[in-house]
Structures are given as C-alpha cells and as structure tokens.
Design a protein around this nucleic acid. Structure first.
Length: 504
RNA sequence: GCCGCGUUCGUCUAGGGGUCCAGGACGCCGGCCUUUCACGCCGGUAACACGGGUUCAAAUCCCGUACGCGGUACCA
C-alpha cells in the first residue's frame, strides 16, 4: 500500500513569483487541479519565493489572477488560507532552519564556508576533458573548507564570527535512487552523479530542494505533478526525504511545451519574435477565451482516449488520469489554439459573445466602437451576423467596422473584379428604387435588386457585388441583404450614391 | 562531456504483439453549399527515426545507434 492510497489526495502548484504566469505553468496547475478534482482531493497553491534576486512583487497577484481567469482557484493558498499555512516559503524560514539543523546533527549535512570564487577555482582545478564541470561532492569536498574537515571549535567560531556559509547535503556516492514516475514508469539515477546540494543559502534562505521537500511533507502533499525539468532533481529530493526519515510523495513529471519547431522550452523571447501568447496576460490581450486556452493546454500531452476534442473544465477534471499523459515534449501550435478559440466563439450565445467582446471593444477608441454601445438590438443582430465569421470575440470590434462607419476606401482587387462598365448606372437605379420603396427590409432589398437585374437582363451578381462593395468597402462579409437591413435604408442609399460618385 | 527522459502524418495525438498497406484533429489542397466571405458538409495530402534481435506474426517487446529535449547553480 502506498501512502497515497491511504490518505486524501493533496497536490500543489508551486510557482516562484518571478514574473507573469507562463502558460507552461498554467498547464502544470491545470493537471494538478484535474488530478485533485478527479480524486476529490485538495489543490494547494504555494508561493516559492526563496530567491530574493529574482523576486517580483506583483507576480503573486499575477499568478492568482491567472488561475482565476482559467477557472482553477486553489483550495488552499496565501489568499484563501488553509490548515497548512503559511503558503509563502519566505514565511516558513524557521521550519527550514530547524530541519537543516536536524540534518547536520544527524550527520546528513554539513556547513561549508567556501566562497563562490573558491568553488570556481576548485572546478577549474579538477576539470578534465571527461568531466568539464566537477561537482562539489564526495570526490572534492575533502579539498574544501567545511565542517567535515574543520574542528567543531573552528566551525563554531566561524559561524559566531559571521562568516558566510551554506549548509550542504552530504551525498553518499555509492547509492542508486529508483522511483516510479506516474508518467514515465521506473526512473533510476546513480547518486554518484549528484553533488552535495546546497540546502540553506548564505543569505539564510533555503534552496528550492530543501524548501520543496520540507513543505511537501509538512503540507501533506501526496502527489508531486510538475514539469520534466524537475526530473533530474527528484533523486536529490528523495535523498532528502530519506535523510529526514519521511516517505516521499508519488511523482509525475509532465512533458514540456516546446517552441514551434521544437527547439527548446517555449520561451517568452520566442513569443515576442513570433507573436505567440506565452503568458496568461498575453492570452488575454490577444483575445483568447479561457475555455479555449485550458482546453488546448490540457490536450497538450494528455487526451482521454477518444476522438472528442472539446471539453469543459469539469469534463476534463472528471476524465483526467496521469496514465494517459504522454512523456514526449509537445510543440506549441498557434493554429490549433486558434481553432479551439473559434470553436468556443461559435458555441457562445449571442449575448455571451457580446459579453466577451465588450472589454475589448471598450479599449477601441474608434467612432464605430462608440456606436457599438448605442443600440442593444442592433448590436445583437450584428453579433449574430458576424459570429460564424470570426475567430476571436474581439474580432467583433476589429472587423465589421462598416456596420458603424461609411467606408472611406474600397478594396482595390474587389473593385477591379466587380466594378464594371454600367455598374454605376445600375447602382444609381437601385438606389432610386430603394429610396422610393414603401418598405425596407432584407427581403424587400433583395426582391428589388433581383427585379432590377431581370429588367435589365443582367445577372443579379452584376448588382450584388458592386452594392456590397459600395456598402461595406470589402468583398466579403455577411449576406448582403441582412447587412443592408441592419444598416437601414438611409445609410444604404447614401453609401451606394457615394460609391457611384467615387468609383464612377 | 556526464546523467536522465523522449521519438507514430508539418503539428497535437489514437493504437501497446495479429482486427493497422496505421484512425482522429489542426494546417494545407480540392469539391459541394452560397452569385460574397465565413460556417457546414464531402474528399485528398501526409507518419510508425534507423539497425539488429525475440516471435508463426512487431508501430506495439528487447538491445544498440542517431536525433531531440531536460538537468548538470548559494535559479526555481
């Protein structure tokens, strides 16, 4: 019986607050969240702020709001509290110091006084072709300044004097660490390849390794689900669990999201050069719907085994299983995430679509954006007409401006193709009839147009296309007559006459 | 360099000894619908990294090679 099968599942998402929430991080959070929900467990947020140099004040807020946007709020965390707090590592320092001391007392760890320069010198001294980067480990620690070689007296003296020092784990090189990874199966490392890991840094802060192990244990974490970049740290962590006399949690290392092309982890730098949304913030700005983003992210490396692709958060949480997560890295495909977005946009009710578009429209200062908020019913008509033609809800605020403003230019290629000899005359006649008609709606506009075409012995297309051009300025868009009805008679007549004047 | 993980259409994947001359989705290309553009529908393109085993039978199991990625910090 493993520990996890006996106790309630507890997982954690443990980002360090160094910047905005990366979608790779969101995906890790998502998988943890799914696993927790699937097993009726708890999803814990822990902030790993032990690196003072890289700490970013707003990052914690950013992470939280990113998770909230995605719909996965933690059950426990710095904001929501919980029985295992505090949830920021900077507030748990005393605990790390306590266990570090215990490790020293029991001979599993030692003080080291070497300066970075001295360590660098050691590396240079022992570097060979086969081993270009020697480690601080069993083979070299005898050469260094640490409590293993110094007398107890001298160690005490140095510490009291305030000499900079760290605490290192004493790794026995003769062992082998083997563990069962839920995604990769059996994974095995020789301890000979592991250096004497720093546990407490000279500023008194714990390193990731110590803090992580202590907290996962103290917080009752049963399953560690994290990115593959941690796989080779896992034996260090298991060594720590052993030294502390604790049972390690279950492990699962997720495949990484790679740049398009497969070169390296998806990076912010890459995002900038290729315009990819790499952070939650960028996703929001680009107008992605959260449902699309989480659906896309979840299916990167995981799938429930059938052909279905569109899943709600709840469905995924219900179906999720670590056994169905693949081991290989996955490339970010902007086409696919756009397709997901389009699927969700198309599935929205008109009111939902409008609701999603609104914040984006508000940022748009154009005259027509102002017009967008004028008539409720009209806005709904426009949204309904545009819905099958857009990928992002915010496209409502970026294409289809002709619903609000008269076109000022006419698509050149379309003019060349559609504006023929006689177009001007036909359009003038059509405008006259529209103006004189007793009624005006889509059906009327169409009937009049077709009647005119027939009278003149011309195909309806000879009028439809130039009218579309006159009315919208562009070659594509919703059904011409629906569009005309929404615009209203006066506007249509005005635009047609204007086009006749401009295009001759 | 060393250690670890990975490798099915361009991409995300199904499949885990016979049902696979490998299925789905995105993309791309054609067609239908529509006198627009989309949507939708129909069709097409395209893959088991390579080499050895094991087996009556291998995409599936084993070994090796290649390639990719990750790690190799007082960063997480």
């Amino acid at each position: 019986m493993t520990k996890s099968s006996l106790s309630k599942v507890r997982v954690r998402f443990a980002p360090s607050p160094t910047g905005s929430l990366h979608i790779g991080g969101l995906r890790t959070a998502l998988f943890n969240y799914f696993f927790a929900r699937r097993h009726s467990g708890a999803f814990v947020l822990r902030i790993e702020d032990t690196d003072q140099a890289r700490f970013v004040r707003e990052a914690e807020w950013d992470i939280l709001s990113g998770l909230k946007w995605a719909g996965i709020e933690p059950d426990e965390g710095p904001q929501q509290g919980g029985d295992f707090g505090p949830y920021r590592q900077s507030e748990r320092q005393a605990m790390y110091a306590l266990y570090a001391q215990q490790l020293i007392d029991e001979g599993h760890a030692y003080y080291a006084f070497d300066t970075p320069e001295e360590i660098e010198a050691m590396r240079e001294r022992f570097a060979t072709e086969e081993n270009p980067s020697p480690k601080y480990d069993a083979t070299t620690r005898g050469e260094m300044t640490n409590s293993l070689g110094l007398s107890g007296e001298e160690v005490r003296e140095r510490i009291e004097r305030g000499d900079a020092h760290v605490i290192r784990l004493k790794v026995d090189p003769g062992g082998r660490i083997t563990f069962q990874d839920h995604i990769r199966g059996r994974v095995s490392f020789s301890t000979g390849g592991i250096d004497d890991q720093v546990l407490i840094k000279s500023d008194g802060m714990p390193t990731y390794h110590l803090a992580n192990v202590v907290d996962d244990h103290a917080m009752g974490i049963t399953h560690v689900i994290r990115g593959e970049e941690w796989l080779s740290s896992t034996p260090k962590h298991i060594l720590l669990y052993q030294a502390l006399g604790w049972e390690p949690p279950e492990m699962a290392h997720m495949p990484l999201i790679m740049n398009p092309g497969g070169k390296g982890k998806l990076s912010k730098r890459h995002a900038e050069t290729q315009g990819l949304p790499v952070t939650v913030e960028q996703c929001q700005l680009a107008g992605y719907e959260p449902e699309a983003v989480i659906n896309f992210l979840a299916l990167l490396g995981w799938n429930p085994g059938d052909d279905k692709e569109i899943f709600s958060l709840d469905e995924m949480a219900e179906l999720f299983s670590l056994d169905r997560v693949n081991g290989g890295g996955v490339q970010f495909d902007v086409n696919k995430i756009n397709w997901f977005n389009q699927q969700y946009v198309r599935g929205f009710s008109v009111d939902q679509l409008l609701e999603r578009a609104e914040p984006h429209v508000r940022k748009n200062a154009s005259a027509w954006a102002a017009g967008f908020f004028k008539g409720e019913e009209r806005r709904r008509q426009i949204a309904a007409l545009m819905q099958p033609r857009i990928t992002f809800s915010k496209d409502l605020s970026e294409t289809g401006g002709y619903f609000f403003e008269d076109p000022t230019t006419y698509d050149e290629a379309a003019v060349k193709k559609r504006w023929k000899e006689g177009s001007a005359e036909l359009l003038s006649a059509y405008a006259d009839r529209l103006g004189a008609a007793s009624d005006f709606d889509a059906a009327q506009a169409e009937a009049m147009l077709r009647a005119l075409a027939e009278e003149r012995g011309a195909g309806a297309g000879r009028i439809i296309h130039p009218v579309r051009l006159a009315v919208s300025g562009v070659p594509g868009g919703p059904s011409l007559f629906d569009m005309m009805e929404v615009l209203g008679r006066e506007v249509c007549v005005r635009r047609i006459r204007k086009a006749v004047e401009v295009l001759g």
